[in-house]
């Protein structure tokens, strides 16, 4: 059983509280991603799980065991660091075998495990190189290999792909996903990149200012965000949010009531361009950005607000064209004055 339980975890550095009471259950074998803007506390939370940062308040369980004051190395977790943290004075093989040597694993057993990990990560040819002789992607794989050989119960990843170029990042992302599938371990992964979060996670934890904003599957977060922050953080380009008052009339003509909603969210990819006068919104094309697969349209509405639309079809409107925008009412998101999602209303629609 390698589930994780976080109960009202808090972390203070001096007088500033960076983790302000986090409750979270992570199931055995789950791939959980902590995501949030920089400074939200996601890395600190991961480091509290690893044992590198002590816990000011609250309780942390791995399985059934309270581990608040258990040393990092005895928690049964392994960590892949952002900078990889490979020992510069040791070869790839020594780096991977270092933890086993420290834990006094018999030499043949250690050798076997290192070779096994090296084979699965295609590192055999590099075993006798030093970290400085490796490319970024290779270092990343060694860092993962080092984590694997200890047969940890839980893998922790601290923004492991942020030092790689875009192409390699996509590639390593797939490798990490494959690794999770193969090993089936519980994994906790920190990133600020929401695409990484969406593609890797079984469960995403969105953090802001040291508190959890929402926990859910990628689909849940995308389709039913709990609040404005999550709605705009997940999805790219970010969700358009209009003042409810400015579209109240148009919605009413389709039998939609806004009720107590203060803001209405529409994802750029859910809006489609229709003839002026049709749809629920009217506006003028201000900017048109052709990206190959699609065109990004910046539309100025009659209310003066601007929305972004991803236009995939033919007949791309030109700048200064007056157009209408349509959306499936299913894809509308309603938020109250505090930014909390209003769900029942959406269902009633």
């Amino acid at each position: 059983m390698t589930s994780l339980r976080l109960q009202n975890l808090k972390k203070r550095f001096g007088s500033t509280e960076v983790i302000r009471g986090v409750d979270l259950a992570i199931e055995d074998g789950e791939f959980v991603v902590f995501v949030g803007p920089s400074g939200c506390g996601k890395s600190t939370l991961l480091r509290m799980i690893s044992g590198l940062e002590d816990i000011t308040e609250g309780e942390l369980y791995i399985g059934d065991r309270l581990i608040n004051d258990v040393q990092a190395a005895q928690r049964g977790v392994a960590m892949v660091f952002q900078s990889y943290a490979l020992y510069p004075h040791l070869t790839v093989k020594q780096n991977m075998g270092f933890g086993l040597k420290v834990r006094k694993v018999p030499a043949e057993e250690a050798e076997r495990r290192v070779m096994e990990a090296a084979a699965s990560l295609k590192l055999e040819a590099l075993l006798h190189r030093y970290p400085r002789e490796l490319s970024g992607g290779q270092r990343q794989r060694v860092a993962i290999g080092r984590a694997i050989v200890g047969h940890p119960q839980v893998f922790l990843f601290d923004e492991p792909l942020s030092n790689l170029d875009a192409e390699l990042r996509v590639h390593m992302r797939a490798e990490i996903a494959a690794l999770h599938k193969k090993l089936g371990n519980t994994m906790v992964y920190v990133t600020h990149d929401q695409i990484e979060a969406m593609t890797l996670a079984d469960k995403i934890v969105v953090l802001r200012d040291g508190v959890i904003e929402q926990v859910g599957t990628p689909r849940e977060l995308y389709e039913r965000p709990d609040n404005l922050f999550v709605a705009q953080f997940i999805g790219s380009p970010r969700m358009n949010v209009l003042l409810a008052a400015s579209v109240e009339r148009q919605l009413a003509t389709r039998g939609l009531k806004i009720g107590s909603a203060h803001g209405i969210g529409m994802r750029p990819e859910h809006l489609s361009v229709v003839d002026a006068g049709a749809g629920i919104l009217r506006g003028t094309v201000m900017i048109s950005e052709y990206t190959g697969a699609a065109t990004l349209l910046h539309i100025e509405l009659e209310s003066g607000e601007t929305v972004l639309v991803i236009h995939n079809g033919q007949n791309t409107p030109r700048i200064d064209d007056a157009i209408g925008l349509a959306i499936d009412p299913e894809n509308l998101h309603f938020f109250d004055g505090k930014g909390e999602a209003i769900r029942p209303l959406q269902r009633a629609a």
Partner: peptide, 25 residues
């Protein structure tokens, strides 16, 4: 993964540690 290292350390670690991590440091 019956042979995981962490299984036997976890057995040892069940005993409550005498000092907090901060104190130990």
């Amino acid at each position: 993964m019956a042979d995981t290292l962490t299984n036997h350390v976890s057995a040892r670690g069940l005993r409550a540690p005498r000092f907090s991590l901060r104190q130990r440091e």
